[in-house]
């Protein structure tokens, strides 16, 4: 069972309070009707599957209720950081350096 830092509550809490919500930074096009089939396919279905740092979303369902973003290492299952929804993608090399 992981420990997850909720950026809104500013507390590190057990995983049972959270639910996973898929890859982060997948932006819904502002005008979906003007997207091509392949653009829409990419938005709907194409996802990263990295060995290592993964940008993903979680929701503090049994807590503040907020969706937020996280970078998790899919090998070690460690969270490198978590940050508010809408915040820019953090720099990976910094995070990996800090994790060491």
């Amino acid at each position: 069972m992981l420990l997850i830092h909720c950026p809104y509550c500013d507390e590190t809490l057990p995983e049972v309070e959270f639910t996973y919500a898929g890859q982060a930074h997948v932006v819904r096009p502002a005008d979906p009707s003007s997207t091509s089939d392949s653009e829409w396919e990419a938005f709907l279905f194409l996802r990263e599957n990295p060995k290592g740092a993964h940008y993903e979303r979680w929701r503090h369902l049994h807590g503040c209720g907020r969706f937020f973003n996280a970078v998790r290492d899919t090998v070690s299952d460690r969270f490198l950081t978590t940050y508010a929804a809408g915040a820019p993608r953090p720099d990976l090399s910094d995070l990996i350096e800090r994790a060491k």
Binding site: T19, A21, R57, R59, R66, F67
Partner: peptide, 10 residues
């Protein structure tokens, strides 16, 4: 959950 997702993040 789905509604909250769109409301909060989109």
């Amino acid at each position: 959950n789905m509604m909250e997702d769109y409301r909060q993040t989109e």
